[in-house]
Amino acid sequence: KCTICLSMLEDGEDVRRLPCMHLFHQLCVDQWLAMSKKCPICR
């Protein structure tokens, strides 16, 4: 589950894993990281 948009991560979707190993939709986390340089879970 992407904790930014709260939707399930589905096969075939573009996802991004951060160095902390948390996984998000690529678009969601890219937009998040443009505003904050910290993982939305770890922050």
Rank of each mutant, 00 (worst) to 15 (best):
K1Q: 08
W32K: 14
C39Y: 02
D14E: 10
W32C: 06
C20V: 00
M21V: 03
R43K: 15
F24S: 09
R43I: 12
D11C: 06
C5V: 00
S36Q: 14
L23R: 12
L33V: 09
W32P: 09
M8G: 13
H22W: 00
A34G: 09
S7A: 14
H25D: 01
G12N: 12
Q31K: 15
D14V: 08
I4A: 04
H25W: 00
D14Y: 02
H25R: 01
S7T: 12
R43W: 15
I41L: 11
M35N: 09
Q31E: 08
L27M: 13
K38W: 13
R43L: 15
L33Q: 10
V15E: 07
C39A: 02
L23V: 12
Q31L: 03
E10A: 11
R17N: 02
D11I: 08
S7M: 12
F24K: 03
P40R: 03
Q26Y: 06
R17M: 09
L33K: 06
W32N: 12
S7L: 11
A34W: 04
L23F: 14
D11W: 02
M21N: 14
P40G: 03
T3C: 09
S7V: 06
M35C: 13
V15M: 12
T3R: 07
K38F: 15
R43E: 15
L23N: 07
L18I: 03
C28V: 00
R16V: 10
E10P: 04
W32L: 14
T3V: 05
R16W: 08
M8S: 14
M35H: 06
M8T: 13
W32H: 08
F24A: 13
L33R: 07
A34Q: 09
W32Y: 07
C42F: 02
L33E: 11
S7Q: 09
Q31D: 05
L6D: 15
L18Y: 06
L23M: 10
Q31G: 10
A34D: 05
Q31V: 06
D11T: 08
L9G: 01
H25M: 00
H25I: 00
L6Y: 06
R17F: 08
K1F: 11
V29G: 07
L27E: 14
D30A: 10
I4E: 04
Q26D: 09
L6S: 15
L27V: 13
E13W: 03
D14T: 10
P19R: 05
C39W: 02
S36R: 07
L27C: 10
M35S: 13
Q26N: 12
W32I: 11
I41G: 13
Q26G: 13
A34S: 08
E13Y: 05
Q31N: 09
V15C: 08
C20G: 01
D30Q: 10
R17E: 11
H22P: 01
L6F: 14
K38Q: 12
L6K: 15
V29K: 04
P40W: 01
C28R: 02
C20N: 10
C39F: 02
M35A: 14
E13V: 06
L27R: 15
P40E: 05
L6A: 13
L23P: 06
C5D: 00
G12Q: 07
F24E: 04
H22N: 03
C39T: 05
K38G: 14
S36A: 12
V29M: 10
D30T: 10
L6E: 15
L9W: 01
R16C: 14
L9Q: 01
R43S: 15
M21W: 05
C2M: 01
F24Y: 12
I41E: 15
G12C: 07
C28G: 01
D11F: 09
E13P: 03
V29N: 04
A34M: 09
L6W: 09
Q26L: 07
I41T: 13
L18Q: 05
C2Y: 01
V15Q: 11
P19Y: 06
H25L: 00
R43Q: 15
L9D: 09
H25K: 00
C42V: 03
C28W: 01
S36P: 04
P40C: 04
H22E: 01
V15F: 11
K38E: 12
D30E: 13
C2S: 02
C2K: 03
S7F: 07
M21Q: 14
I4F: 12
V15L: 10
A34F: 06
I41N: 08
P40D: 01
L18G: 03
L23Q: 13
Q26W: 05
V15T: 11
M8I: 11
Q26K: 13
C5R: 00
M21C: 09
R43C: 15
L18C: 02
L6G: 14
L33N: 07
G12I: 04
L27I: 11
L9S: 02
L9Y: 03
H22T: 01
A34T: 07
M21D: 14
T3A: 09
Q31S: 12
C2A: 00
Q26T: 12
C42Y: 02
H22V: 00
P40I: 06
Q26H: 10
P19L: 02
V29L: 12
V15W: 08
F24G: 15
D30C: 04
L33Y: 06
K37T: 09
H25G: 01
V15N: 04
C42S: 04
C28N: 00
W32V: 13
P19I: 06
C42A: 03
K37M: 13
C28T: 02
C2P: 03
M8D: 14
D11H: 12
S7E: 13
P19D: 04
D14L: 09
L18D: 01
M35D: 13
T3W: 11
C28Q: 01
L18H: 00
V29A: 12
V29E: 05
H22G: 00
M35T: 13
K37L: 08
K1Y: 14
Q26I: 03
R17A: 08
L9C: 06
W32T: 11
H25N: 03
S36H: 11
H22C: 10
C5Q: 00
K37R: 11
F24I: 06
I4G: 03
L18T: 03
H25T: 00
